[in-house]
Amino acid sequence: MAAVTLLEARGLTRSFGGLRAVDHVDFTLNSGEIHALIGPNGAGKTTFVSLLSGRLQPDAGQIRFDGADVTRLPAHARVAQGIAYTFQITSIYAGLTVADNLALAVQRHPTRDLAGETARAAARVGLGDHLGQVAGLLSYGHQRLLEIGMGLALRPRLLILDEPTQGLANKEIEGFTALIRSLLPETTVLLIEHNMDVVMALADRITVLNFGKVLASGAPAEIRANRAVQDAYLGGHHAAD
C-alpha cells in the first residue's frame, strides 16, 4: 500500500531574534504512521511542532494538511481540522474537575451523551476513578495522562505529543505505549521524545533535528546506523549497540 501524505511542510523557517530555531525544514508525515522527532535540547523540536499546530507563525515556508494549505490558519481552526497538540509543560484547567477538563475536549464533536463519552475518555487514560477530582490536585503523572486524554478526546487525525512520557513512571510508560499503538491507523502520531526506548518501541519513522535543520529521516534501523546522527546526538551510544 502506497503511503498517503497527511501533512507536508516545505521550507519551514522561524527565527527568534538572530537565532534560526527552525531553518528551511522539509518534512512529510504519512497517514497512519507513528513518527518520532528527536534531537538534542535546543534543536528546534518544540518550535517546529508549534509551527505545525499554529501556535507560532512561520517566517517562511508552507504547511499542507490533508492536501489543503493551512499555513495561515490560526491554531484553533487547525485543531478543528484535526490537528491536536498536547503541551510539553502540562497545561490543563487546574481549577476544574477531571470530568470538566475532558468534557471540554469531548464536546468539540456533537454528542448526545456527553457524560458517558467523558467517562469513556477518562477510562481510556486510566483516570476513570478520578472524574470528580479537581485536576490541579492530581499527581503529576495523572496530570500528564489527563493532558494526553484531552488530546485523544478531540479524536484528531493528527496527534502531536510534546515529550509525553516526561515524568511518567515506568509502569505508566508501558500503558502509554500500548495506548498510542491502539490509536492506529485512524490517528497519525507525531511524537517528540527523549526516551529512546519509547522511540524505538513505537516509531515507524524517525526524523532527527539539529540546529533547526533536518539531519536525517528514515526508519529506526537507518537512523540507528546513521553516522551523522550518532555523532550529533546518540553520542557514544552506538558503540554499545
Binding site: 499546530s53 490543563i92 476544574l96
Partner: peptide, 18 residues
C-alpha cells in the same frame, strides 16, 4: 463550560479548537 475554560486557561482552550 467554554466560557469558564476561557477564564481558566485561554491557551489550552485555543488548543482544544475554541
Amino acid at each position: 463550560r467554554t466560557l469558564v475554560a476561557m477564564r481558566e486557561n485561554e491557551e489550552r482552550s485555543r488548543m482544544l479548537g475554541y
